[in-house]
């Protein structure tokens, strides 16, 4: 998280965030214990994962799933759950396995 003020006096009153779209600066990916791994070969681009993702962590390019924004994905697993059973293009993997 970048510093928004060096002094409590410089913060907006009441903890208000006075500009839109700042959630992108707040990286929540390190909360994750399970990482969604997307398989482009299996994916049919139905975009169910994109619809259900409670963050905005499914990255699209030209209407197709490009990958997962791991700086913001918290690893809830909803994308893997909603991926159609016959497709199963997203697998949740222990973060520890990547270290």
């Amino acid at each position: 998280m970048k510093d928004i003020a060096n002094n409590w006096k410089d913060l907006p009153v009441g903890g208000v965030i006075d500009e839109p779209g700042t959630a992108i600066n707040y990286e929540t990916g390190d909360w994750r214990t399970l990482r969604p791994v997307h398989n482009k070969e299996k994916c049919i681009n139905c975009l169910a994962c994109w619809v259900y993702c409670p963050d905005a962590a499914i990255m699209l390019k030209d209407g197709k799933v490009e990958g997962i924004d791991l700086k913001h994905c918290k690893g809830c697993g909803i994308c893997a759950q909603e991926c159609p059973p016959k497709v199963k293009a997203i697998k949740m993997v222990e973060e520890a396995d990547f270290r």
Binding site: M1, I4, A5, N7, W8, K9, L11, V13, G14, G15, V16, I17, D18, E19, P20, T22
Partner: peptide, 22 residues
């Protein structure tokens, strides 16, 4: 547009409470 009541963990909660005290 503004956001009100955003989450405020160890990074700035203390500064915001200091402002309430002032």
């Amino acid at each position: 547009p503004i956001t009100v009541g955003a989450i405020d963990f160890v990074d700035y909660y203390f500064e915001h409470r200091r402002a309430v005290a002032q």
